[in-house]
Design a protein around this nucleic acid. Sequence first.
DNA 1: ATATGTGCAAACGTTTTGCAACTTC
DNA 2: GAAGTTGCAAAACGTTTGCACATAT
Lengths: 141, 141
Amino acid sequence: LKRTRAREAVIRLLASRHGPFTTDEIHRDVSKSLEKGKVTPSAPIPARETCDLATIYRILAKFSEAGVVTRSDFGDGVARFELAHEEGRHHHHVICLVCGKAEPIRGCDLRLQEESLRKLGFTRLSHRLEFFARCPACAAK
Amino acid sequence: LKRTRAREAVIRLLASRHGPFTTDEIHRDVSKSLEKGKVTPSAPIPARETCDLATIYRILAKFSEAGVVTRSDFGDGVARFELAHEEGRHHHHVICLVCGKAEPIRGCDLRLQEESLRKLGFTRLSHRLEFFARCPACAAK
DNA sequence: ATATGTGCAAACGTTTTGCAACTTC
DNA sequence: GAAGTTGCAAAACGTTTGCACATAT
């Protein structure tokens, strides 16, 4: 894993704000940050102003594979990424039906969580839950 | 909602077998079933032999909107559909990491379900859980 | 020096759409 | 006959890939 400006910019974004980001959001932010020459203060005018979207995809694939970031999927056909929680803490999200903003939630107690969300003012609550596993038939092969 | 042969074929497939189906699977099955002229026994040789994929998408969109079918998303970039459970029973799925087969699961008690899945021989268990709601900020608008 | 990362452009697979012809009611 | 549905072809969308060039170690 080499240290490059694009990769640093991705990490910087993910570390600075939370909530998962789409590839496109990351791309726009990283391009902007590279444009400003923020990456290497020693080099005021960077050779490359922006970053290719394909590069962002490749960076996220690598990071994902390396366990640095985790991928989320809210069922809208767009992948989202966030820094793998430092403490390795497993978590989920509430996604707003109106503005689409996602907020992290700790723990897996469904009833309890729905109740606290309701108390916080969240309405029209629903959830999606999927289990992934190796099924008995495939384990037997 | 008009009654057409393609729509009948979609319903027939979804009603005959369970587990959610991809659009492609539905398309292939419906085309085959229309080919055989099974739809209208009174007309042995149907005018149209197959069904367009775009039509399947449109049918599923309509049905989904009407609440006849529900859409699932396993994060592999393909939408899946199944008949909205007759009794309106809310349920989830276990998706095999190896063969990809999905089986329905009743209820939402995460711990309990993981345990029973383990007892059934499912291994390498993980889950994805997302909440959807209208957030307080959007409710205030 | 070598392995690795990048930009660009083209391809991919799923899903959506415009339009004219055709069914269903 | 009017409203709704379909086929076809083309486009949109997020994502992936091949290749030559550039970069980090």
